[in-house]
Structure formats: C-alpha cells, structure tokens
C-alpha cells in the first residue's frame, strides 16, 4: 500500500512562499489567479496490508513528524 500525504499551512498562517509564487504567476501575465498557498506532498510505501492498521501508522507519522500541527494541517489517501 502507498500513503499519499498532503501537508498544508493552516488558514490564517502567513504563507510568504505562497505569496511569492502568486506574484510570480501574475508576473507571467496569467490572469484569473487568486490566492496561492503552498505545501508539501509526501509518498510513503507501507508494508502493512490491513487498511485500519495502515491508517493508524500514517496518523502517527503525520502527527509525530511529518506535520507540525501548530502551523500545519495534513490529509492523506491510502491505497
């Protein structure tokens, strides 16, 4: 199984990198672009085949290491 994990900054947390990307996109002359927020995408191969156990493993790694829950949210798909 593979876990596909997305880590994003929480709403209200300033994202200067997202702002810089937004400025660069608009600088290309691309119109119709609003707010840009950036984050991280992580793929993890899992040896576990039981979906419930896999979920528990992914939860733990997100909470304990991959995301800093002071400033970040995480979401994942396992399959």
């Amino acid at each position: 199984m593979k876990a596909r994990i997305k880590i994003t900054l929480k709403n209200g947390v300033l994202d200067p990198q997202g702002k810089a990307i937004e400025g660069a996109v608009k600088g290309l002359g691309i119109s119709g672009v609003g707010d840009v927020r950036q984050g991280k995408y992580i793929e993890v191969d899992l040896k576990e085949t039981d979906p419930a156990k896999a979920k528990a493993i992914v939860e733990q790694m997100c909470k304990d290491l991959l995301a800093n829950t002071v400033i970040e949210n995480y979401a994942y798909e396992i399959g």
Binding site: Q17, A20, N68, V70, I71
Partner: peptide, 17 residues
C-alpha cells in the same frame, strides 16, 4: 526546542523570504 515541544509555537520562513 519548538519542534520537540519544550517550547510552544513554531519558527516559520521569514516574512521577506
């Protein structure tokens, strides 16, 4: 210290980048 939970909060990218 912040990442280990001994202090609260987090240190983020400088606002100026």
């Amino acid at each position: 210290l912040c990442e280990s939970g001994l202090l609260p909060g987090a240190l983020m990218r400088n606002a100026s980048l």
